[in-house]
Design a protein around this nucleic acid. Structure first.
Lengths: 335, 335
DNA sequence: TTGAAAGCGCTAACAT
DNA sequence: ATGTTAGCGCTTTCAA
């Protein structure tokens, strides 16, 4: 900036004013300064600019589990859109489900003086964020609630979605309903199983008769679990899958054995309507998760005193899949 | 930091050393400083730290078209992984296919002093990056080559992939082959059509007999285009689709009319193996695009004199889809 | 409307 | 091993 000032024959401060579009600079000088900037290839240093003024960095951070997963990348895209409206950049980082890395990333982003933080918590203790929150950094938790401290949170109505899906199976007459899930030590999966269990109990069915915790969301492993379930003495006539990857594993297995077992699952997804197996899935507005989280960050940035907010995104049931001519919707065994 | 120094009864510089893990500080002082840091809730300011030292910002930027698109989010995830290995954060921003926004984002990121930039160019002129490159910022273009200046580039072998796919259809005896594409003013689509055209010409077939530029990648619109193609006087016996969204649109239409037209398309995708229509798709390593781009950024960061690098990621053919019992692989009309 | 001086929070260079 | 001083590139006083 000093060089530009010298080249333009003005003071450093005038250059600063021009760089910040301060209106009280004479057009002639503005012109001269612009020319000098161009010639020298001047580029203002953002960090230095923010240093003295203590202004915000115009950056918010997002820590998700895995950017390659469409669920999380959709959240990121929606959050980025809100950020853009606030003239803010979004830094997205993946924790890879590693609590230590989640913490590292969060603290690194705070050191970069982000104006806010959105986190999908993976560890079982977010209390390390206490100092940051006290310092005034807005922190919002999305998809899973925090542990060890309280904070603004945006969740899916996992429990109710699972209840609805299972109720649908019950309404259709099914009583022997399998429940296949990923590891239950994650909040979302635990909630979904809780919802399914509640509904089964309410209907007088045994919620544990056909329950498998696959412990991974690998479709092949889930498919194998489904195979085992169907080969057992009293196989279920319908299966509820805890997420879409388990659901596709189940579909593969059911197609393989040309089974007509009724299928339901959590998560809607692209191409679900094209899969050759009819099913009922629990849909929800994934973008809303990212949008609401980002909006909360900016709201709290403006008013740090407001009460804690908890959003719960609603779910709905959708019929998906096409019938490839298998004996679907077979009569459930009543009783 | 001054406060910490006072609280610990040491000089500012000692605090700085402790913050940077400089080994030549006596354990007793380290302990005292750490305690003071904790009590005051001290947090070092990253920007200020980098300011004087002129060190890198440990950040690289990635500008893609749309984070919600799995293709781009996969690139982002792979790039982020490489960045992490270099103790660097990745800022991902979506241009939304808007050239003006691409430029804005790129310059904003440069102002933030990113250590490198990866761009999926959407505009037809990237010469605005000249000053940045001259200043020493490594810039890598991915998925599409830059226009208006030269630079390190990572591309998919679009042309060859399309050739292979069409050749497969030709080998199977098809001569009347439809080509359905998105807008041809994007590099990738133009290359794919060029490849298809080359192969059709080489086989003595008319490359323009059944060609439709849908001009969007909306599946429904693509499906309608396919419908029109099949309702024409001399319908093709096989169709090559320029990308996976057009391909799924075609599948929906073909399923609807229980047509057995042979299908091939560019892009492999999740669940393709489960779709109820047999097809041949052009696969490639999407993660490699992100990985190679990021690696190029860091390589050029270390050695700005190396010659321009152009990587071309290979493609391969895969059979996807399941047969729902339609009259597929019907005998093509020979001649 | 323009400019000079001080200082943001930290690190580099040079003492001690 | 520790402290002192200058200064990164900019913005904010405050003065002209």
């Amino acid at each position: 900036m000093v060089d530009v000032a010298r080249a333009a024959g003005v003071s450093l401060k005038t250059v600063s004013r021009v760089a910040n579009n301060v209106p009280t600079v004479s057009p002639a000088l503005v012109e001269r300064v612009h020319r000098a900037m161009h010639e020298l290839g001047f580029q203002r240093n953002n960090a230095a600019a923010h240093l003295r003024s203590g202004r915000a960095s115009a950056t918010i951070g997002l820590i998700i589990l895995d950017l390659a997963n469409p669920f999380y990348s959709t959240i990121a895209a929606a959050a980025a859109e809100v950020a853009q409206r606030h003239h803010t950049q979004l830094i997205t980082a993946s924790s890879g489900r590693d609590p230590a890395r989640e913490r590292e990333l969060a603290l690194d982003l705070c050191e970069r003086r982000v104006d806010g933080l959105i986190i999908v918590p993976t560890g079982d203790d977010q209390s390390y964020l206490r100092p940051e929150i006290d310092r005034g950094t807005p922190v919002v938790f999305v998809d899973r609630p925090p542990t060890g401290l309280d904070g603004d949170t945006v969740l899916i109505d996992n429990r109710d979605g699972a209840r609805e899906a299972v109720r649908q199976l019950l309404v259709e007459g099914h009583r022997d309903i399998g429940v296949v899930t990923d590891a239950l030590n994650t909040y979302t999966m635990a909630e979904r199983v809780a919802g399914a269990t509640e509904e089964l109990l309410a209907a007088g069915a045994d919620p544990d008769a056909h329950r498998i915790e696959v412990g991974t969301d690998d479709p092949a492993t889930a498919g194998a679990a489904v195979a085992g379930m169907l080969d057992a003495p009293d196989p279920p006539s319908a299966i509820f899958c805890g997420n879409n990857r388990i659901l596709t594993g189940a579909i593969e297995e059911l197609l393989r054995r040309r089974s007509g077992v009724r299928l339901a699952g959590f998560d809607d997804f692209e191409f679900a309507h094209l899969l050759p197996y009819p099913m009922t899935v629990v849909g929800y507005d994934t973008r809303a998760l990212g949008r609401l989280s980002a909006e909360l960050v900016f709201q709290r940035g403006h008013d740090s005193t407001r009460a804690l907010t908890k959003y719960v995104v609603a779910t709905y049931l959708v019929r998906r899949g096409v019938d490839p001519g298998l004996p679907h919707e077979r009569e459930p065994r009543v009783g």
